[in-house]
Amino acid sequence: MAKFIQILKDINELIVFKHSVFALPFIFVAMIVASKSANGSVWFGFELLILGLFCAVSARNFAMGANRYLDRDIDKDNPRCASRPSVDGRIGSKNLLIFIWLNALIFVVVAYFINSLAFWLSFPILAILGAYSYFKRFSSLAHVVLGICLGLSPIAGAIAVLADIPLWVILLSCGVVFWVAGFDILYSLQDMDYDKKKGLFSIPSIYGAQASMFICALFHFLTILFWLLFAISAKLGIIGFIGVAVSGIILYLEHRIVRRDFSKIDRAFFTLNGYLGIIFFIFVLVSLW
């Protein structure tokens, strides 16, 4: 039993499950807006709730597993990453591959039971999720690719409910893309010197800290702009607009913390961004009620 518990702890450390808080609120934002537009109610049913959770968790497990597997050669020399289970031998390469493909299978099978559009799009979605790790080896657009990976989440939520991709969810997803790309740039400031040494194409390693902060601020401005357009398109009303404004304030605080002290990047990265997604969801939910 103790060994099994330790395996679960190692897997949790591998995939950093608590970071699911970034994508899940926006999946559910899309699902409640879609349900409200289609059925007049924000509740989309227990079946879609369970299937949606399985899809979200398995897709993220696949993406994180693939990233850890492909980045072993990069992580082993990075002091911040050298103790990861994929690097220090706690989870071997064979077991990691089993974990990756098992979650891919779960994602595809669950998507099949949602609807045909979800099933057919599950394959290109997996390809995009798996491609992220390669981009940092040749392009500074890796941050945007990571944003696209999480930006697919609300689109998947809308497809689950509507079997369609309406305009409002594209606007919501674009906001998520720039939100994630922006805070990933901030997070990459921690590895700026290491990335330079390894020849990796992160924006901080190529353009430096100050330029990276400017690009991040630009991305987060676009985030708020797209979420404002989403609130208008989805007809969320004044409460939805307040939710967007509060999100903007949180992003401002994130930038303020990082500019003052790079050692607090983890706090800005996880704490504030984690709160942002949940708060945004609550405002959208209240506005629809």
Score class of each variant (00 low, 15 high):
residue 219 F to K: 01
residue 173 S to Q: 01
residue 240 G to R: 06
residue 104 A to L: 06
residue 23 A to P: 15
residue 232 I to C: 00
residue 229 L to V: 01
residue 129 L to V: 09
residue 172 L to G: 06
residue 194 Y to V: 06
residue 28 F to T: 03
residue 33 V to R: 01
residue 289 W to Q: 05
residue 23 A to C: 11
residue 2 A to G: 10
residue 269 F to H: 05
residue 274 G to P: 10
residue 248 G to D: 04
residue 66 A to F: 00
residue 247 S to I: 06
residue 137 R to M: 10
residue 119 F to N: 07
residue 274 G to L: 04
residue 256 R to T: 03
residue 173 S to R: 01
residue 237 G to H: 11
residue 217 A to C: 04
residue 184 D to P: 10
residue 182 G to N: 03
residue 153 S to R: 01
residue 190 Q to P: 03
residue 103 N to V: 08
residue 174 C to A: 09
residue 247 S to C: 11
residue 170 I to T: 10
residue 29 V to P: 00
residue 169 V to I: 05
residue 258 V to L: 03
residue 269 F to M: 05
residue 49 L to S: 11
residue 253 L to I: 13
residue 141 L to C: 03
residue 199 G to L: 10
residue 98 I to N: 08
residue 40 G to Q: 10
residue 259 R to D: 10
residue 261 D to L: 11
residue 248 G to P: 13
residue 82 A to P: 00
residue 108 V to T: 12
residue 244 V to A: 10
residue 161 V to E: 13
residue 233 S to K: 06
residue 191 D to A: 08
residue 198 K to L: 08
residue 76 K to E: 14
residue 75 D to H: 06
residue 287 S to M: 09
residue 247 S to T: 12
residue 206 I to R: 13
residue 281 F to L: 15
residue 22 F to V: 05
residue 43 W to C: 01
residue 135 F to M: 02
residue 48 L to I: 09
residue 235 K to E: 15
residue 244 V to M: 09
residue 83 S to M: 12
residue 188 S to C: 14
residue 228 L to I: 06
residue 246 V to C: 03
residue 4 F to D: 04
residue 56 A to M: 14
residue 226 F to D: 02
residue 7 I to C: 00
residue 174 C to I: 07
residue 191 D to C: 03
residue 131 A to N: 05
residue 12 N to E: 12
residue 71 D to I: 07
residue 186 L to E: 14
residue 125 I to F: 15
residue 187 Y to A: 05
residue 10 D to T: 01
residue 77 D to K: 02
residue 34 A to K: 02
residue 267 R to W: 07
residue 224 I to A: 10
residue 209 A to Q: 13
residue 186 L to H: 12
residue 73 D to H: 13
residue 187 Y to F: 15
residue 4 F to R: 05
residue 150 L to E: 04
residue 265 I to E: 06
residue 112 Y to C: 08
residue 76 K to W: 15
residue 57 V to P: 00
residue 171 L to T: 02
residue 41 S to P: 02
residue 199 G to R: 08
residue 6 Q to N: 12
residue 166 P to D: 02
residue 169 V to A: 01
residue 40 G to N: 02
residue 115 N to D: 11
residue 135 F to S: 01
residue 62 F to V: 08
residue 235 K to F: 02
residue 266 D to N: 14
residue 97 L to Y: 07
residue 188 S to L: 03
residue 34 A to N: 08
residue 285 L to A: 15
residue 194 Y to I: 13
